[in-house]
């Protein structure tokens, strides 16, 4: 699968030498293009771990399924909170599914026992 950089959103991490996606990619696949935006140098080598999608502060990266193994066009978008991720998945027929997943323990867990009136 391949990361797709949304060029209107990517700010190249303010044109630092290494944007965050480049720093984090376990496959050394993301880099800064000559236009100052992130680019995946070899989309076919992506393992779709989605580390870049998760870390991008602009929400400018999406993972796409290559047409060879999936139809046009589904989306899976994570929205990173402090201790949870909100995933939205839109399938090829436009059906939307959402998931809120805790990914880090917090000192305080959510459930209260005082009942509502």
């Amino acid at each position: 699968m391949a990361p797709k950089v949304l060029l209107n959103k990517c700010d190249g991490c303010k044109a630092e030498k290494e944007p965050l996606c480049e720093q984090i990619c376990p496959g050394d696949l993301m880099t800064l293009g000559t236009n100052g935006k992130a680019i995946c140098r070899d989309p076919r080598d992506c393992w779709d771990c989605m580390s870049c999608v998760k870390i991008c502060p602009q929400g400018a990266i999406e993972t796409r399924v290559p047409y060879q193994i999936g139809y046009h066009e589904a989306k899976l978008i994570p929205m990173m909170g402090t201790n949870r991720i909100t995933w939205t998945c839109v399938d090829i027929d436009g059906n939307v599914e959402r998931f809120v997943v805790k990914n880090h323990n917090e000192a305080d867990d959510d459930n209260d026992d005082d009942d509502d009136d």
Binding site: M79, M80, G81, T82, N83, R84, T86, V100
Partner: peptide, 9 residues
């Protein structure tokens, strides 16, 4: 992340 937290909760 805080806005995301709010919407997620």
């Amino acid at each position: 992340a805080l806005i995301n937290d709010a919407l997620a909760s």
